[in-house]
Design a protein around this nucleic acid. Structure first.
Lengths: 220, 220, 220, 220
DNA sequence: CATTAAGCGAGACGGTACGTCAAGTCTTGTT
DNA sequence: AACAAGACTTGACGTACCGTCTCGCTTAATG
C-alpha cells in the first residue's frame, strides 16, 4: 500500500490550524454536528479544503483535535493544578465535590455539544471511539483510580475492591444520564450515587451472610 | 406550518414495510450505519424511495422501527413471559442472572450493530434519543425497579434507597463499557458490579472514619 | 401484442370529460404547458388519475382534445358560417380580410398558449404533430386552396400555379413570425404579405425574361 | 435576488465541455430530445451532474450550445466562406441554389433532430426561443436581406419591397413544411417557391381587375 | 540573494446521496 | 364498470458535500 508522502509539519500554518479549530467548534455549536461539513469549516475558517484534508482524516478527527485543544486551553486558563481529585481524607466528600464540578462541566454548552457529538461518533466509529476514550476519558478515570487506591490504603475502601470497576459505580450512571437523557442531573443525584456506591444497597445487618438471605426471616 | 396530508395508513403495504425492515437491518449489519443510505434500503427492499419517505422521517426512524420490530419478534419467538426478572428471593443471584443474559445479548451481532447505531444517533438527535430510551430502555429499567422494590419489601435493600437510581449502579457501568469500549464485558464483571452495588465499597466496620453516618448502626 | 380491453365509451362520464378539458386549458393558461401535469389536471378536475389514463394516452392528447373542443365551442358560439373565406371577387381584399382575423386570433391569449404548446409538442412528437396538422391546420388551409382555385377560374391567379403551395406564401410567414417570434405581427404586415405574394417581388418589366438578367445592362 | 457567484470560466475543463456537447448531441440523436436527460448526458459524458448545472441552466441551454458548436465546427470544416449567398447576378438562380443546400441540410439527420428539438423548445420557452432565433436563424436571414438588397440595386426587385418581409415568402414556407410536416420538401418545391415569390401569383396582364396598382406599368 | 519547492486559498471536477416531483400502474371502496 | 382516491415502483430532478485535483500565490530554507 502506498501511503501519501507525509506533509512537512514544520511548514504548517499555525494560523490555519487555529482558524479551523475555531470554525469547527463554532459550527458544531451553532448548527450541530451532523450539519457541520468540512466545506463549511473550510469556508468559515477562510481556508482551502485541501488544508483540512492534508492534516486530518475526517470531520470527526478535526473536531476531536479541536476539542482537545479547547480542553487544554480551558484547563490552562482555569486552574494551576490541572486535574486532581482532592484528598482531604474524607473519601465521600472528595468524590461528591469532584462530581459536582463534573456536573457543572456537563451543563456548560461550550463543552456539551462537541463532546456529545464526539461521543456519538465514537460509538459507531470504533477507531475514533478508542481515541476519544484514551485521550479524554481515561486520564480523568485514572484520577479516580488513584484516589480510590489512596482510600484503600487508608482503610476506607475494602482492599479486595478493584478501583477500575469501583469508579464506574458513580461515574457511569452520571455519564449515561447525560448522554442518553435517561434522567436529570443534579448535585443531589451525584451525592446519592456516591453514597450508594460507598455503602451499598443492602442493609448493614452483619448477621445476614451476603448472598444467602433467609427468606422467611423478615416475614412474620 | 403546512403539514403534508397524512397518508392513509389502512392502505399501507405490509409487504413493503417488512421488506424495508429487513433491508435496513441487513444493510446496517453488513456495511454499518453511516454507509447505510435510504436509497440503498429502498433498492435492497425493492421499494420506491418515496415509500420510505412517506412513512418515516429519516434513516434513524426507519432503523428504530425496524429494530423495535426485530426485538418484538425475537421476544415472541424466544419465550412466553419475555421480560421479567426472576424473583427467587436471592436478589444478588437474580440480578447476576439477568445481567449475564444481557451480556449475551450485547454480544449478539444481530443486535449489536443496530442498537449501537441507534444509541449513537440518539445522542445527537434528541428527539430520536428520547424515543429510543422510552421504547427500548425504559421498559427494561422498569423491571429492575420492580425487582428492587420487591427486595426492599423483603428487607434486602435499605428502605430509603431510590430504586431508579440504585439500578444504575450496575446497569450503567455495563452500558458504558459496551457503548464506549471502556472495558471488557464478562460474567465476572457483571457479577462484581452486583456485589459492589449491593454491599458498597466501604468496609463493614463500624469505626469507619468517613463522614457518612452508618445507617444500620443506629437501629438496635 | 396484447392491447388493453378498450373501455366502454357508453358509460363514460361526461362530467369528468368536461372537467378535465377545463382543468387542462386553465392550467396551461396559468402555469404553462411544461409545468402542467396529469396529476395537476386530475386534482383540479376532481378526477382520479386513472380516469385520464383510461381515455387519453398522454398530456398532449388531453390538451389536443381540450383545444379542439374549445375551438368547436368557440366556433359554434361566435358565428353561423363556421369558417369560410369570403369571395367578393377581389382576391387581395378577401385574403387580407381573412388574415386580419387570423392575426386577431393569434393574439387572443385563450388560444395562444395552448396552440403554441400543441405546436411545440407536435414538432417533436410526430404522431401528435400529424394529428395537430390534420385536425387544426389542414381544414383552414383547405379554405385557402378553395379560394385560390376560385380565383384561378376568375383569371386572377395564373392557371399553372399550385394553390397548395401558393397559400404558403402568405400563411407560412405569418405562422413563423408568430411561432418563433421572428418578427412583429400586424395588419400592415399581413397586407404586405398578400401584396407581395400576389404580384411578386420582381418588377413588372415584361422585357426582362425571368431568370436571365442582363448583367451589364444596368451598369454603364 | 441572490445570484450564485459566477464560476471561474478560466478554470473550466475543455475536456468536459466537449464530452458534454458530444453526449448531448448523441443522445438527442439516439433517443430523442424528450427522453434525453441531464443525468443521461452527464453519465454518457463521464461527468458529474454539477458540472453541467454549473455552466448551463437547462437541458435546452446545453443542447443549444452543443448545436451552435456543431454548426460552427461543420462550417469550419466544410468551407472557408461558410455563409454567403452567391451573387451571380441571377437572383432566382442564386436563391434556388441556396435553398437547395438548405433542403439538404434540413434532411441531414445530424442536424435534423437537434434543431427540430431546439425549435420546439423555443416555441414554449420564449427566452430560449429568442436566443435560438438570434444565434441560428437571424444570421442566415440577414444573408437573404443582403442578397435582396443587392438585387434591388440591380433593378431585379422592386425598390419599395421590404427585403426582411420578402425573404419570408420562400424561407417561411420551407421552414413550416419542415417543422410541422405540412408537406414534402424537395428541390422542385423550393424552386417553385422562388418562382412564385419573385413573380407573384397574379397573371402579368395589365387588365387585372384586382385593386392593387401595377407598379411597373406606370414607368415607361 | 535569488531559487525553488512546500503549504496555502480557491474552487472545478467526478461522484454519491439527498429529498421532491411526477409518471404510469394497481388496489380499494363508492356510485 | 366507471369512478375518486391515493399508495405503489420508477426515474429524473436540482442541490449539497465528498474527497481529489489543479491553479496561482505566498513564504521559508537552500544552493
Amino acid at each position: 500500500m502506498v501511503k501519501k508522502p507525509a506533509p512537512d509539519a514544520t511548514r504548517r500554518s499555525e494560523r490555519s490550524r487555529r482558524a479551523i479549530y475555531d470554525a469547527a467548534l463554532a459550527l458544531v455549536g451553532e448548527i450541530g454536528y451532523p450539519r457541520t461539513t468540512i466545506e463549511g469549516i473550510a469556508a468559515r475558517a477562510g481556508v482551502g479544503k485541501q488544508t483540512i484534508y492534508r492534516w486530518w482524516g475526517s470531520k470527526a478527527d478535526v473536531l476531536l483535535e479541536a476539542f482537545l485543544d479547547l480542553s487544554a486551553r480551558a484547563a490552562r486558563e482555569a486552574g494551576q493544578e490541572p486535574y486532581v481529585i482532592p484528598d482531604t481524607g474524607d473519601l465521600a466528600a472528595d468524590l461528591k465535590a469532584v462530581l459536582r464540578i463534573t456536573v457543572d462541566q456537563l451543563k456548560d454548552p461550550r463543552f456539551e455539544v462537541p463532546s456529545r457529538a464526539l461521543a456519538a461518533e465514537g460509538l459507531v466509529n470504533e477507531q475514533l471511539g478508542r481515541e476519544f476514550v484514551a485521550k479524554l476519558l481515561e486520564p480523568s478515570l485514572q484520577l479516580y483510580v488513584d484516589r480510590l487506591r489512596s482510600a484503600q490504603e487508608a482503610g476506607q475502601v475494602r482492599p479486595e475492591v478493584d478501583p477500575r470497576i469501583a469508579l464506574e459505580l458513580f461515574v457511569s450512571p452520571l455519564a449515561q444520564r447525560w448522554l442518553q437523557h435517561t434522567g436529570p442531573i443534579s448535585y443531589a443525584y451525584t451525592d446519592t450515587l456516591v453514597e450508594y456506591a460507598l455503602h451499598g444497597l443492602a442493609p448493614r445487618t452483619p448477621d445476614v451472610p451476603s448472598g444467602t438471605p433467609e427468606h422467611g426471616a423478615v416475614r412474620p
